[in-house]
Nucleic acid binder design. Structure first.
Length: 591
RNA sequence: GCACCCGUAGCUCAGGGGAUAGAGCACCGGUUUCCUAAACCGGGGGUCGUAGGUUCAAAUCCUACCGGGUGCACCA
């Protein structure tokens, strides 16, 4: 083979420019990093922007720098003749035979030509973290979906990923359950359907709270809330009966959240909730006190991140520990147990300050910031808003956005769309499978296609649309690829992957570039921790496929082009499927 | 009061040093003897919150201000 393995077009070009710059220009690495995707396809595939800045540092006109640089660049085996444009842009366009060779390699590679990273890291990802005994709602959705996607992405790239669900299984919400058990229990129902009965108890008790929004904090003169708090305190103090109830209820609580995870196709390596760290908390506080990192103040113990600001409390004046204490113990435990290079916390951006304080304390504690300690990263995300631009959350004490109901609604709507569009030939399709896959996919994709850091407005209409950057559009593009292969009478196994690929039209060429960009995109998505980079890519890929679909007949292609076009369809299908899989979204063969 | 995030087309949002700033929706106009019309093509529409600064080059980086959101000891 003429070209070495290496499908990453961007890296190939940067490598070539690095060689050309070496020994000639200052800082070849920085300058070669100025090779970027073309801002407009009319300029070519990629562009090198180094000449402008080098012109300054080398004291020559940028266009002259560009010409001298091109004279040093080895290009003719992979590129058409590069062109200098404007103030000194170097426009780069790959040779078709080079792209065709790479596509052939991809077609015969079970990773579509995408390499594993050279230096795998050990990455703990902490996400989802719902409170047990309390119905999951949309607030948990983003963390769960984002975390799962980041885990899949890093794993695919070859990193060792350890996912850990830091359950809230020791907090006030359990006190609510204990109070409910003592005052509102339907014993018969508990026998028959414990999961549902516990869920019911939580909702029943919550109704009697005076405060509307959150169960914690707020009104101190609320008798029911006080009683629940008391149950929690008893549990924490080791009350035998409450502890026994905790042990008895936990499996049912876990079963309830597990049902949601099964439906969302979300998986964890570990589920180590707050309760797991209880035995370690006293030691953490003593340790920090004796090291002078924490000190007593107003009866509590806190770490003063700044002298003026509020401290991060690690023990309250009543002796109870806080979530900062638990999180510190968790960091310590994860370092000992998993020895990670980094720990990612996929948590609401509103907790930014908490993580800032937590990471700073861990650093003072000597757990990070040294050569061996892990990098601690808060991966923040914005809130999910309703049509009124206010966060969707419990209102009037009622959960308006229960997660399971939300998924049901998505599936129901996807089914309606199916019925509207498949009235005539519905029997050819598996309606319930299509509705479930499209509905769940829509919810996930809507979340992931948004830039993580911004709030986003939840909209059924937008997420289930067939036009635009949605899951359904990608799933549909996939189904159409598969449909063509079926109609051509070739099963994926029978496909001749060795057949030469030829890029006969501009549409095929544009599609080829998109297929071959995937590794570059996945690496960018991983390094920025942003799945929306992947959804943006899938949208570009699907649009390129659409252009191909319009202009390049496959089944009725000239015989010389048929095998090549079938392979392109197959490559697109595999790329879409892989991309969606890394987002935690499934495909269907017919929709 | 302090801190963090955000302000880009009518709406929802991409883009976060490089060429005339993009997409979807909405609006206007077109396309089907053709592999799923759940499709495609074209058009109008933007002082990128404001003002300075850095740079060969700023929506992008820095500073100030304006507007919005969020968080700031005993909830997690």
């Amino acid at each position: 083979m003429r070209w070495k393995l290496g499908m990453n077009l961007l890296e190939v070009l940067r490598g070539r420019f690095y060689q050309a710059l070496l020994g000639w220009a200052p800082d070849p690495l920085t300058a070669s990093a100025l090779v970027k995707p073309a801002t407009d396809s009319k300029f070519g595939d990629y562009q090198a922007n180094a000449a402008m800045s080098l012109g300054k540092s080398m004291g020559k006109p940028p266009r002259q720098v560009a010409e001298e640089l091109l004279a040093r660049l080895q290009w003719d085996d992979i590129l058409e003749k590069p062109e200098i444009a404007g103030p000194g842009f170097i426009n780069l366009k790959f040779r078709n035979d080079y792209l065709e060779g790479l596509l052939s390699q991809a077609a015969n590679d079970d990773r579509i030509g995408i390499a594993k990273v050279a230096n795998p890291r050990r990455i703990v990802i902490d996400f989802s973290g719902p409170n047990v005994a309390k119905p999951m709602h949309v607030g948990h959705l983003r963390s769960t979906i984002l975390g799962e996607s980041l885990a899949r992405l890093h794993r695919f790239l070859g990193h060792l990923v350890i996912t850990d669900n830091h359950l809230g299984d020791w907090g006030t919400q359990f006190g609510i359950l204990l109070y409910g058990y003592r005052n509102k229990l339907d014993a018969e129902n508990l026998k028959k359907n414990p999961v549902a009965e516990l869920a019911r108890l939580y909702v029943e008790v919550r109704k009697e709270f005076k405060t509307g929004s959150d169960e914690e904090g707020g009104d101190k003169s609320d008798p029911v809330q006080d009683a629940c708090r008391l149950e929690t305190v008893k549990l924490h103090q080791g009350d035998e009966e409450n502890l026994a109830l905790w042990n008895r209820f936990m499996p049912f609580c876990l079963e309830e959240i597990d049902a949601v995870y099964r439906r969302l196709d979300v998986h964890f390596d570990h589920i180590l909730g707050e309760s797991h760290y209880q035995p370690m908390l006293a030691t953490v506080v003593e340790d920090l006190l004796s090291l002078g990192i924490a000190r007593e103040s107003q009866g509590a113990v806190g770490v003063f991140i700044t002298e003026e600001g509020a401290p991060a409390l690690i023990r309250k004046s009543d002796g109870a520990f806080t979530y900062t204490t638990t999180d510190l113990a968790t960091i310590d435990y994860r370092i000992r147990e998993f020895n990670p290079t980094e720990i990612l916390y996929v948590v609401d951006s509103r907790q930014h300050l908490h993580f800032h304080n937590l990471f700073e304390t861990a650093k003072r504690w000597g757990r990070t910031g040294t050569e061996s300690g892990p990098r601690l990263v808060h991966v923040p995300f914005g809130s999910v808003l309703g049509a009124d631009r206010k966060p969707i959350k419990t209102r009037d004490g009622k959960a308006v956005a229960n997660l399971d109901q939300l998924l049901d609604e998505a599936v129901r709507l996807a089914g309606e769309i199916f019925d509207a569009n498949r009235a005539e030939d519905a029997e050819l399709f598996n309606r319930s499978l299509v509705a479930e896959t499209v509905g769940i996919g829509a919810v996930k994709y809507a979340d992931l296609s948004q830039n993580r850091t911004t709030d986003y407005v939840f909209s059924w209409e937008k997420m289930l649309a067939m036009d635009g950057n949605t899951a359904a559009y990608m799933q549909y593009a996939y189904a159409r690829c598969q449909s063509i292969l079926r109609k051509a009478g070739v099963s994926p196994e029978a496909l001749d992957t060795k057949a030469p690929i030829s890029l006969a039209t501009p549409e095929e060429r544009a599609l080829a570039i998109q297929i071959l960009r995937m590794e570059e995109i996945l690496l960018a998505g991983a390094s920025e921790l942003r799945p929306n980079i992947i959804t943006g890519y899938l949208w570009d890929l699907a649009k390129a496929y659409s252009g191909f679909f319009q202009n390049c007949p496959v089944i009725k292609a000239p015989p010389a082009l048929l095998p090549s076009r079938l392979l392109l369809c197959h490559l697109v299908a595999r790329s879409l499927k892989l991309g969606l899989d890394l987002l935690g979204i499934q495909v269907i063969e017919r929709m």
